[in-house]
Nucleic acid binder design. Structure first.
Length: 298
DNA sequence: AAATCTCTCAACCGCCGGCTG
DNA sequence: GCAGCCGGCGGTTGAGAGATT
Protein backbone atom coordinates (compact mmCIF):
# COMPACT_ATOMS: atom_id res chain seq x y z
CA UNK A 1 0.00 0.00 0.00
CA UNK A 2 1.23 3.37 -0.89
CA UNK A 3 0.16 5.10 2.23
CA UNK A 4 1.45 2.80 4.91
CA UNK A 5 4.96 4.13 4.80
CA UNK A 6 3.59 7.35 6.18
CA UNK A 7 2.85 5.73 9.51
CA UNK A 8 5.66 3.23 9.74
CA UNK A 9 8.41 5.42 11.06
CA UNK A 10 6.28 7.20 13.56
CA UNK A 11 5.56 6.10 17.09
CA UNK A 12 2.00 5.06 17.56
CA UNK A 13 -0.05 8.07 18.52
CA UNK A 14 -2.65 7.76 21.24
CA UNK A 15 -6.01 7.68 19.55
CA UNK A 16 -9.07 9.27 20.98
CA UNK A 17 -12.07 7.03 21.45
CA UNK A 18 -15.71 7.54 22.11
CA UNK A 19 -18.21 9.93 20.66
CA UNK A 20 -17.12 12.41 18.07
CA UNK A 21 -17.26 16.08 18.92
CA UNK A 22 -18.73 18.60 16.48
CA UNK A 23 -15.22 19.97 15.99
CA UNK A 24 -13.90 16.56 15.00
CA UNK A 25 -16.81 16.08 12.64
CA UNK A 26 -16.10 19.42 11.04
CA UNK A 27 -12.42 18.62 10.64
CA UNK A 28 -13.13 15.29 9.04
CA UNK A 29 -15.87 16.62 6.80
CA UNK A 30 -13.81 19.55 5.65
CA UNK A 31 -10.81 17.37 4.97
CA UNK A 32 -12.71 14.80 2.93
CA UNK A 33 -14.64 17.43 1.00
CA UNK A 34 -11.42 19.20 0.22
CA UNK A 35 -9.05 16.33 -0.48
CA UNK A 36 -11.36 13.44 -1.15
CA UNK A 37 -11.29 9.85 -0.11
CA UNK A 38 -7.90 8.26 -0.16
CA UNK A 39 -5.90 6.40 2.41
CA UNK A 40 -7.86 6.42 5.63
CA UNK A 41 -4.82 5.94 7.79
CA UNK A 42 -3.44 9.25 6.57
CA UNK A 43 -6.69 11.12 7.05
CA UNK A 44 -6.45 11.67 10.83
CA UNK A 45 -2.83 12.79 10.50
CA UNK A 46 -3.55 15.25 7.73
CA UNK A 47 -6.84 16.41 9.19
CA UNK A 48 -5.38 16.97 12.62
CA UNK A 49 -7.51 14.36 14.32
CA UNK A 50 -6.42 12.17 17.19
CA UNK A 51 -8.37 9.23 15.84
CA UNK A 52 -7.31 6.19 13.93
CA UNK A 53 -8.12 5.83 10.28
CA UNK A 54 -10.65 3.15 10.91
CA UNK A 55 -12.59 5.37 13.23
CA UNK A 56 -12.54 8.18 10.67
CA UNK A 57 -13.75 5.84 7.96
CA UNK A 58 -16.60 4.61 10.12
CA UNK A 59 -17.60 8.10 11.14
CA UNK A 60 -17.65 9.22 7.52
CA UNK A 61 -19.56 6.23 6.23
CA UNK A 62 -22.11 6.08 9.01
CA UNK A 63 -22.64 9.71 9.81
CA UNK A 64 -20.93 12.36 7.72
CA UNK A 65 -21.22 10.97 4.21
CA UNK A 66 -23.42 13.05 1.95
CA UNK A 67 -26.72 11.53 1.01
CA UNK A 68 -27.39 9.65 4.19
CA UNK A 69 -31.04 9.22 4.95
CA UNK A 70 -31.73 9.71 8.62
CA UNK A 71 -34.85 8.92 10.53
CA UNK A 72 -37.35 6.16 10.90
CA UNK A 73 -37.52 3.20 8.59
CA UNK A 74 -40.67 3.01 6.52
CA UNK A 75 -42.94 -0.01 6.42
CA UNK A 76 -41.64 -0.79 2.95
CA UNK A 77 -38.04 -0.62 4.11
CA UNK A 78 -38.88 -2.80 7.09
CA UNK A 79 -40.47 -5.45 4.90
CA UNK A 80 -37.60 -5.36 2.48
CA UNK A 81 -35.05 -5.77 5.25
CA UNK A 82 -36.87 -8.79 6.60
CA UNK A 83 -37.20 -10.31 3.17
CA UNK A 84 -33.58 -9.73 2.30
CA UNK A 85 -32.45 -11.02 5.65
CA UNK A 86 -34.30 -14.24 4.97
CA UNK A 87 -32.45 -14.50 1.69
CA UNK A 88 -29.02 -13.28 2.67
CA UNK A 89 -28.76 -13.77 6.40
CA UNK A 90 -26.61 -11.31 8.34
CA UNK A 91 -25.03 -9.90 5.23
CA UNK A 92 -25.71 -6.35 6.32
CA UNK A 93 -23.53 -4.69 3.75
CA UNK A 94 -25.29 -6.55 0.95
CA UNK A 95 -28.67 -5.73 2.42
CA UNK A 96 -27.69 -2.08 2.83
CA UNK A 97 -26.80 -1.86 -0.85
CA UNK A 98 -30.51 -1.97 -1.58
CA UNK A 99 -31.22 1.00 0.67
CA UNK A 100 -29.63 4.12 -0.74
CA UNK A 101 -28.76 6.45 2.08
CA UNK A 102 -28.94 3.79 4.75
CA UNK A 103 -25.84 2.29 6.29
CA UNK A 104 -25.22 -1.33 7.12
CA UNK A 105 -24.73 -0.32 10.73
CA UNK A 106 -28.09 1.38 10.79
CA UNK A 107 -29.84 -1.61 9.29
CA UNK A 108 -28.02 -3.97 11.61
CA UNK A 109 -29.04 -1.93 14.62
CA UNK A 110 -32.62 -1.74 13.44
CA UNK A 111 -32.69 -5.45 12.97
CA UNK A 112 -31.40 -6.17 16.44
CA UNK A 113 -33.57 -3.60 18.16
CA UNK A 114 -36.86 -4.10 16.31
CA UNK A 115 -37.12 -6.61 13.53
CA UNK A 116 -35.52 -9.54 15.31
CA UNK A 117 -38.23 -9.41 17.93
CA UNK A 118 -40.92 -9.44 15.31
CA UNK A 119 -39.39 -12.48 13.68
CA UNK A 120 -39.11 -14.29 16.99
CA UNK A 121 -42.70 -13.39 17.80
CA UNK A 122 -43.83 -14.71 14.45
CA UNK A 123 -41.84 -17.85 15.05
CA UNK A 124 -43.56 -18.39 18.36
CA UNK A 125 -46.94 -17.79 16.75
CA UNK A 126 -46.14 -20.29 14.07
CA UNK A 127 -45.19 -22.91 16.62
CA UNK A 128 -48.34 -22.20 18.54
CA UNK A 129 -50.54 -22.40 15.48
CA UNK A 130 -48.84 -25.54 14.27
CA UNK A 131 -49.39 -27.27 17.58
CA UNK A 132 -53.03 -26.24 17.54
CA UNK A 133 -53.38 -27.46 14.02
CA UNK A 134 -51.81 -30.81 14.83
CA UNK A 135 -54.05 -31.27 17.82
CA UNK A 136 -57.26 -30.48 15.98
CA UNK A 137 -56.72 -32.12 12.66
CA UNK A 138 -53.48 -33.97 12.47
CA UNK A 139 -54.48 -36.23 9.61
CA UNK A 140 -55.12 -33.33 7.26
CA UNK A 141 -51.57 -32.14 7.41
CA UNK A 142 -49.33 -33.39 4.71
CA UNK A 143 -45.99 -32.37 3.45
CA UNK A 144 -47.44 -29.96 0.92
CA UNK A 145 -48.55 -27.45 3.53
CA UNK A 146 -45.07 -26.32 4.25
CA UNK A 147 -44.62 -25.43 0.63
CA UNK A 148 -47.72 -23.30 0.76
CA UNK A 149 -46.49 -21.09 3.54
CA UNK A 150 -46.61 -17.45 2.70
CA UNK A 151 -43.37 -16.29 1.32
CA UNK A 152 -42.20 -12.81 0.70
CA UNK A 153 -41.33 -12.42 -2.93
CA UNK A 154 -39.70 -9.16 -3.63
CA UNK A 155 -40.15 -8.07 -7.18
CA UNK A 156 -36.83 -8.18 -8.87
CA UNK A 157 -35.08 -9.85 -5.99
CA UNK A 158 -35.40 -13.34 -7.35
CA UNK A 159 -31.74 -13.55 -8.17
CA UNK A 160 -30.83 -13.27 -4.52
CA UNK A 161 -31.83 -16.89 -4.21
CA UNK A 162 -28.79 -17.66 -6.28
CA UNK A 163 -26.62 -15.38 -4.23
CA UNK A 164 -27.65 -17.09 -1.04
CA UNK A 165 -25.86 -20.28 -1.91
CA UNK A 166 -23.97 -21.82 0.94
CA UNK A 167 -23.37 -18.58 2.73
CA UNK A 168 -26.45 -18.84 4.87
CA UNK A 169 -25.93 -18.24 8.54
CA UNK A 170 -27.42 -19.66 11.66
CA UNK A 171 -29.94 -16.87 11.74
CA UNK A 172 -31.40 -17.23 8.31
CA UNK A 173 -31.83 -20.92 8.83
CA UNK A 174 -33.84 -20.40 11.94
CA UNK A 175 -36.11 -17.68 10.72
CA UNK A 176 -39.56 -18.90 9.83
CA UNK A 177 -41.82 -17.53 7.22
CA UNK A 178 -43.50 -14.48 8.60
CA UNK A 179 -47.10 -15.27 9.37
CA UNK A 180 -48.14 -11.75 10.15
CA UNK A 181 -45.89 -9.98 7.77
CA UNK A 182 -47.77 -8.44 4.88
CA UNK A 183 -46.57 -9.89 1.66
CA UNK A 184 -45.14 -7.70 -0.99
CA UNK A 185 -47.46 -7.88 -3.90
CA UNK A 186 -45.66 -7.86 -7.18
CA UNK A 187 -48.51 -5.91 -8.74
CA UNK A 188 -48.90 -3.22 -6.12
CA UNK A 189 -45.56 -2.98 -4.44
CA UNK A 190 -44.34 0.51 -3.69
CA UNK A 191 -40.82 -0.81 -4.04
CA UNK A 192 -38.84 -0.23 -7.17
CA UNK A 193 -39.78 -2.82 -9.74
CA UNK A 194 -36.21 -3.63 -10.42
CA UNK A 195 -33.28 -5.33 -8.89
CA UNK A 196 -30.29 -3.25 -8.03
CA UNK A 197 -27.97 -5.73 -9.63
CA UNK A 198 -25.13 -3.71 -8.38
CA UNK A 199 -25.91 -0.54 -6.53
CA UNK A 200 -23.47 2.14 -7.40
CA UNK A 201 -22.81 3.29 -3.91
CA UNK A 202 -22.48 6.90 -2.93
CA UNK A 203 -18.98 6.09 -1.83
CA UNK A 204 -18.21 4.97 -5.32
CA UNK A 205 -19.65 8.06 -6.87
CA UNK A 206 -18.01 10.43 -4.44
CA UNK A 207 -14.81 8.49 -4.58
CA UNK A 208 -14.60 9.10 -8.28
CA UNK A 209 -15.45 12.69 -7.75
CA UNK A 210 -12.77 13.15 -5.21
CA UNK A 211 -10.18 11.44 -7.30
CA UNK A 212 -11.16 13.49 -10.29
CA UNK A 213 -11.93 16.61 -8.37
CA UNK A 214 -13.30 19.24 -10.63
CA UNK A 215 -15.58 16.83 -12.39
CA UNK A 216 -19.24 17.12 -11.66
CA UNK A 217 -21.40 14.07 -11.38
CA UNK A 218 -24.56 16.10 -11.28
CA UNK A 219 -24.35 18.49 -14.09
CA UNK A 220 -27.33 20.42 -15.31
CA UNK A 221 -25.79 20.48 -18.73
CA UNK A 222 -25.03 16.83 -19.05
CA UNK A 223 -28.18 15.31 -17.65
CA UNK A 224 -31.34 15.50 -19.63
CA UNK A 225 -34.00 16.76 -17.29
CA UNK A 226 -36.67 15.02 -19.29
CA UNK A 227 -34.89 11.75 -19.73
CA UNK A 228 -37.69 9.30 -20.49
CA UNK A 229 -35.68 6.40 -19.17
CA UNK A 230 -35.30 7.97 -15.77
CA UNK A 231 -37.71 6.08 -13.59
CA UNK A 232 -39.15 5.85 -10.12
CA UNK A 233 -37.59 8.63 -8.15
CA UNK A 234 -37.55 6.99 -4.81
CA UNK A 235 -35.50 9.59 -3.09
CA UNK A 236 -35.16 13.21 -3.83
CA UNK A 237 -34.47 16.37 -1.98
CA UNK A 238 -33.69 19.99 -2.31
CA UNK A 239 -30.44 21.77 -2.53
CA UNK A 240 -30.19 24.96 -0.60
CA UNK A 241 -27.46 27.44 -0.23
CA UNK A 242 -27.32 29.65 2.82
CA UNK A 243 -30.27 31.74 1.81
CA UNK A 244 -32.30 30.16 -0.89
CA UNK A 245 -33.50 27.28 -2.93
CA UNK A 246 -30.94 26.23 -5.47
CA UNK A 247 -32.38 23.18 -7.09
CA UNK A 248 -33.82 19.79 -6.70
CA UNK A 249 -31.90 16.59 -6.58
CA UNK A 250 -33.51 13.40 -7.74
CA UNK A 251 -32.03 10.05 -7.05
CA UNK A 252 -33.47 7.40 -9.26
CA UNK A 253 -32.92 4.76 -11.84
CA UNK A 254 -32.12 4.93 -15.44
CA UNK A 255 -32.75 2.16 -17.89
CA UNK A 256 -29.72 0.93 -19.69
CA UNK A 257 -31.03 0.04 -23.09
CA UNK A 258 -28.17 -2.35 -23.70
CA UNK A 259 -29.34 -4.62 -20.92
CA UNK A 260 -32.27 -5.27 -18.66
CA UNK A 261 -30.53 -3.58 -15.80
CA UNK A 262 -31.27 -0.21 -14.35
CA UNK A 263 -28.63 1.96 -12.90
CA UNK A 264 -28.95 4.61 -10.22
CA UNK A 265 -28.54 8.17 -11.31
CA UNK A 266 -28.86 11.64 -10.01
CA UNK A 267 -30.85 14.35 -11.65
CA UNK A 268 -30.63 17.96 -10.85
CA UNK A 269 -33.60 20.10 -11.72
CA UNK A 270 -34.66 23.70 -11.62
CA UNK A 271 -31.30 24.90 -10.60
CA UNK A 272 -30.08 28.33 -9.87
CA UNK A 273 -26.33 28.41 -9.71
CA UNK A 274 -25.22 28.95 -6.17
CA UNK A 275 -21.96 29.01 -4.39
CA UNK A 276 -20.37 27.72 -1.27
CA UNK A 277 -21.71 24.95 0.88
CA UNK A 278 -25.25 23.81 0.26
CA UNK A 279 -27.45 21.56 2.27
CA UNK A 280 -29.22 18.61 0.81
CA UNK A 281 -32.64 18.47 2.37
CA UNK A 282 -34.39 15.16 2.42
CA UNK A 283 -37.89 15.39 3.75
CA UNK A 284 -37.66 17.61 6.77
CA UNK A 285 -34.08 16.86 7.43
CA UNK A 286 -30.91 18.50 6.34
CA UNK A 287 -28.74 15.60 5.39
CA UNK A 288 -25.40 16.94 4.48
CA UNK A 289 -23.38 19.57 2.82
CA UNK A 290 -22.94 20.02 -0.85
CA UNK A 291 -20.54 22.33 -2.52
CA UNK A 292 -22.15 24.30 -5.26
CA UNK A 293 -20.36 26.12 -7.95
CA UNK A 294 -22.72 26.54 -10.80
CA UNK A 295 -22.95 22.82 -11.22
CA UNK A 296 -23.05 20.60 -8.25
CA UNK A 297 -19.41 20.27 -7.43
CA UNK A 298 -17.37 18.68 -4.77
C1' DA B 1 -38.53 13.08 42.59
C1' DA B 2 -35.49 9.31 42.57
C1' DA B 3 -34.20 4.75 41.33
C1' DT B 4 -34.37 1.19 38.16
C1' DC B 5 -35.16 -0.86 33.84
C1' DT B 6 -35.32 -0.96 28.80
C1' DC B 7 -34.15 0.44 24.41
C1' DT B 8 -31.50 2.70 20.80
C1' DC B 9 -27.58 3.44 18.24
C1' DA B 10 -22.80 5.22 17.75
C1' DA B 11 -18.60 3.27 18.07
C1' DC B 12 -15.23 -0.28 19.02
C1' DC B 13 -13.16 -4.88 18.36
C1' DG B 14 -11.51 -8.73 16.01
C1' DC B 15 -11.35 -11.26 11.98
C1' DC B 16 -10.76 -11.79 7.04
C1' DG B 17 -9.24 -11.17 2.32
C1' DG B 18 -6.58 -8.39 -0.81
C1' DC B 19 -2.54 -5.98 -1.87
C1' DT B 20 2.34 -4.79 -1.69
C1' DG B 21 7.24 -5.16 -0.86
C1' DG C 1 5.86 -17.78 0.20
C1' DC C 2 5.74 -14.54 3.91
C1' DA C 3 4.93 -10.52 6.72
C1' DG C 4 2.73 -6.29 7.29
C1' DC C 5 -0.75 -3.08 6.29
C1' DC C 6 -5.17 -1.74 4.72
C1' DG C 7 -10.21 -1.56 4.03
C1' DG C 8 -14.35 -3.95 4.82
C1' DC C 9 -17.44 -6.57 7.46
C1' DG C 10 -20.19 -8.57 11.29
C1' DG C 11 -20.52 -9.06 16.27
C1' DT C 12 -20.63 -6.74 20.38
C1' DT C 13 -20.46 -3.10 23.83
C1' DG C 14 -21.78 0.73 26.49
C1' DA C 15 -23.40 5.55 27.01
C1' DG C 16 -27.36 8.08 27.06
C1' DA C 17 -32.26 8.83 26.59
C1' DG C 18 -36.75 7.53 27.65
C1' DA C 19 -40.09 4.65 30.14
C1' DT C 20 -41.57 2.56 34.19
C1' DT C 21 -41.94 1.70 39.07
Amino acid sequence: MGCNSLEKSKTKPKHRKGLWSPEEDARLRNYVLKYGLGCWSSVPVNAGLQRNGKSCRLRWINYLRPGLKRGMFTIEEEETIMALHRLLGNKWSQIAQNFPGRTDNEIKNYWHSCLKKKVVKAQEMEVHMNSQCINSNSQSIDSSTSQEKPSIQLPGFESFENMKGSSSTDTDQSIPQMLDCPRVDTQESPLPKILFAEWLSLDHIYGQLFVNSGESVISKDTLDQHDPTFQDNFTHGFLLNEESYVGELHHGLSNDSSSDMFSPQFKFESQTPGSGICDFVYGDEICSDFNMNGHVMY
